[in-house]
Design a protein around this nucleic acid. Structure first.
Lengths: 138, 138
DNA sequence: TATACAATCATACAAAGATACAATCATACA
DNA sequence: TGTATGATTGTATCTTTGTATGATTGTATA
């Protein structure tokens, strides 16, 4: 499932799980009908208590994003389309941006420094058609 | 854990705790990955309020010495050597930037779109002194 | 004295874990 | 088929652990 938990940030584990699953849905990495790992399986992968996974699943279930079924498993539901989907994509981008800046800030970088490398890397994207790493020759 | 508090001296308890833990780390009496006593456990040992322990832990957490995790406990972190950390800072920022753009790209956003929201969020950082989310009411 | 501030404490809360339980499934077998 | 049984999956509840907020205490200083 390829979810990664950062135990040092003080963002709750269940929030991190929800964010990453929502992102995977928005990015079409997982599709409606797909089964998520069982609470115990994902808990073992992430080395976390399975109640923490169950909590993330329950909240997403209440939001109508997934369907958890006692004794059966949990599955991705049909996602909103059109305008709603567009809004979700936008929100996810905002979240990604915020997360990016938070991490850069924690590393001690200044806004100017971040802006420089961002624009440089964005430039490569526009030139190459896809994001790529700047050459590290210096 | 063998920490001793001198209630006579006017050195704050939380400072005494931090000093002694830092010393134990420097002296290799405790190593990265080791779990520290819970705030309540150490508070009972030292006959002190657990918030005082929590304060010492929080400050060391902010300094990157330990990792306090809600509901899990607190653990000794790898101690950055300074030189290595400095070298990795730039590289980390590049990696973060690349990851950010990759994920935004997966969401189907265009470079222009990403640039807009990035600059907007960066602006908030410069204004507020720390990264924050743009208000989503519109 | 009075005021301000830092250190500590008291209380209520939130996140995560441990344990026991209930629903469903898979299999064997009458 | 129908049912018994064990495995698998999610759920409920309580405990443990750190967090947030405000009150209390002691001390320096105007």
């Amino acid at each position: 499932m390829n979810i990664e938990i950062n135990f040092q940030t003080h963002v709750p584990i269940y929030i991190q799980i929800m964010d990453q699953i929502k992102h995977k849905i928005a990015a079409n990495e997982i599709a409606p009908g797909d089964q998520l790992p069982t609470v115990r399986q994902m808990a073992a992968d992430l080395r976390v208590n399975f109640n923490t996974i169950a909590r993330a699943y329950r909240l997403m279930d209440e939001d109508g994003i997934i369907s958890t079924q006692h004794g059966r498993g949990t599955f991705i539901l049909d996602q909103p389309t059109g305008k709603e989907a567009e809004k979700l994509r936008r929100q996810d981008l905002e979240r990604l941006t915020h997360h990016y800046l938070i991490e850069a800030h924690k590393l001690g970088h200044s806004p100017e420094e971040v802006k420089d490398i961002f624009l440089e890397t964005l430039d490569l994207w526009e030139k190459n058609g896809a994001p790529s790493l700047p050459d590290d020759k210096k």
